[in-house]
Amino acid sequence: MDSYLWLKYLHIVSAMVIFGTGLGTAFQMWMAHRSQNAAVISAVAHNVVWADWLFTTPAVIVQPISGVILAWMVGYGWSDRWLTASVALYVLAGVCWLPVVWLQIRMRDLATEAALSRHPLPPTYQRCARWWFVLGWPAFGAVLVIIHLMIQRPIL
């Protein structure tokens, strides 16, 4: 397999990891949150934070690097609107994802404190959970549209 195909494979796999890990961890976090059980939330959030560092973060780094190299290899330019739209949506997803990572860490810590002290989840946890939920929608939506743009490469 030549370097272009290897790079394309890496680019596709990293996109799958971003979406798949994001969807899986969001589902787990949401289900734990719905339980309102601080010990459950603490354990799940601990794993979600680790998954973001181990899987999502490397994929988030690989994605734009491989994408830029692939675009250059194929001869796409920044005048191709599908490409600029993809980059803009990637930035939007990142602007949403970075606070989500911080919120997950904060939610984990608040849930851990509540579980250890046998107190209910504090209002700060509930505010973090609401922001986490709200920021997840545009991030996932952006990733879905990016995947569509990568596949279709429409003339916009």
Score class of each variant (00 low, 15 high):
Val91Tyr: 15
Ala115Ser: 07
Gly94Ile: 03
Tyr9Ala: 15
Phe27Leu: 08
Tyr9Ser: 11
Tyr9Leu: 14
Val13Tyr: 01
Val40Asp: 00
Leu89Arg: 13
Cys128Trp: 04
Ser79Gly: 15
Arg106Thr: 06
Trp50Ala: 03
Met1Leu: 00
Ile41Tyr: 00
Ser117Asp: 13
Ala59Ile: 08
Met29Leu: 09
Gly20Asn: 01
Arg118Pro: 00
Leu116Gln: 14
Gly22Asp: 06
Leu110Met: 15
Gln63Val: 04
Val143Ile: 15
Leu149Asn: 02
Asn37Tyr: 07
Leu92Ser: 02
Asp2Pro: 02
Val44Arg: 14
Arg108Thr: 03
His33Val: 04
Thr124His: 15
Thr21Met: 07
Leu156Ala: 12
Leu110His: 11
Ala142Pro: 08
Ala39Cys: 10
Leu103Phe: 12
Trp82Ala: 09
Val87His: 05
Lys8Val: 13
Leu7Met: 14
Leu110Cys: 11
Met16Leu: 08
Ile155His: 08
Thr57Asn: 01
Ala71Tyr: 13
Thr112Pro: 09
Val60Asp: 14
Glu113Asp: 14
Thr25His: 05
Trp6Arg: 08
Gly24Lys: 12
Tyr76His: 11
Met107Glu: 06
Tyr90Leu: 15
Trp131Asn: 06
Val49Gly: 03
Glu113Arg: 14
Val49Pro: 05
Pro58Asp: 06
Leu98Ser: 10
Gly24Pro: 03
Ala114Pro: 14
Pro64Ile: 00
Val49Ala: 05
Ala129Glu: 08
Met29Gly: 04
Arg106Met: 09
Ala43Ile: 12
Leu110Ile: 09
Gln63Ala: 08
Gly94Leu: 02
Ile151Thr: 06
His33Lys: 10
Val101Met: 05
Leu7Gln: 12
Arg34Glu: 09
Gly75Met: 05
Trp50Pro: 00
Leu98Trp: 10
Tyr125Asn: 11
Val60Ile: 13
Thr25Gly: 13
Ile147Asn: 03
Ile69Ser: 04
Trp50Gly: 09
Lys8Gln: 12
Trp72Gln: 15
Trp137Met: 04
Arg153Glu: 00
